[in-house]
């Protein structure tokens, strides 16, 4: 039971929200905000600086392969339709995340499980898509040590992919806890904190997608070497290669 106590002070009134006695799950806080939620916001502030540093590095090096004439060049390998699809998948996962939080806040456990599973699945599809993209780029000759363009691309998008992977593991943990009956509506803030993280990772992808893929690059010194393959064809190729790689 939350009770509010007005404290008259010499300089004015302060309002304190206080969650009952010492046994309560969340002790009273000065601002009334949940401390763990505040911790997540602060972590995201610092994560902005992590991504900011990596994005700056990429922006410095994005044209280096073209300038030095060390192929493959961005226009040859980036496939905007393909990456648009996976970006769309990731953005949709923010919607399902919102629905999951809304479900648990209403005490709808089935809704929580469905939408959390959907979010984790969409996230996993994105990570899988990125894995295939990386494999493709490697086949086309872009490695970590090919050029600083390649290095900064892989480290930036890989760092983001690691964030999504951690998010997927987190969401699956929530799903598991909920299936074990450990996620009552009073613990909706646990889902909300995971949601904050998830939305942040999505927003960062919008920035990365714009700066890395959408802003045009000059062609390489030899001009346009080949048209980027159609996204669908590419998926089929990747699928075939994947099947071919299976040991049976």
């Amino acid at each position: 039971m939350a009770i509010a106590i007005e404290v008259e002070t010499a300089r004015g009134a302060g309002h304190i929200d206080h969650g009952g006695h010492g046994h309560s799950e969340h002790p009273p806080t000065s601002t009334g905000l949940d401390s763990r939620k505040m911790l997540m916001w602060l972590f995201l502030a610092s994560d902005c600086m992590f991504f900011g540093t990596l994005i700056s590095t990429y922006m410095i090096y994005r044209n280096r392969a073209i300038e030095l004439g060390t192929p493959p060049y961005p226009n040859e390998i980036f496939d905007i339709p393909y990456t648009s699809v996976s970006a769309f998948v990731l953005l949709m996962s923010s919607l399902t995340m919102v629905l999951a939080l809304s479900a648990i806040q209403r005490g709808d456990h089935r809704g929580l499980r469905i939408w959390i599973a959907a979010t984790a699945l969409l996230g996993a599809i994105f990570v899988g898509g990125q894995f295939f993209e990386f494999t493709e780029f490697t086949h086309e000759g872009l490695g970590l040590s090919t050029s600083v363009f390649g290095a900064s691309f892989f480290v930036l998008t890989g760092f983001h992919g690691a964030h999504v992977t951690i998010g997927v593991v987190w969401l699956l943990s929530i799903l598991f806890i909920s299936l074990r009956g450990g996620m009552p509506a009073e613990k909706a803030v646990d889902v909300e904190i995971a949601g904050l993280y998830w939305h942040f990772v999505d927003i960062v992808w919008i920035v990365i997608f714009t700066l890395v893929y959408l802003i045009p690059y000059a062609d390489g010194p030899e001009g346009v070497v080949e048209e980027a393959p159609h996204a669908f064809l590419r998926l089929v190729t990747v699928g075939e290669r994947f099947l071919a790689a299976l040991p049976f």
Binding site: S46, G143, S145, A151
Partner: peptide, 24 residues
């Protein structure tokens, strides 16, 4: 909170240069 990410990433890039063959 705002300054340490820069050195963390700087050191990550350095470690990639040393162990991963990049040339940052």
């Amino acid at each position: 909170v705002l300054a340490f990410p820069a050195i963390t990433i700087a050191l990550v890039l350095l470690t990639f240069d040393r162990l991963g063959g990049t040339m940052f």
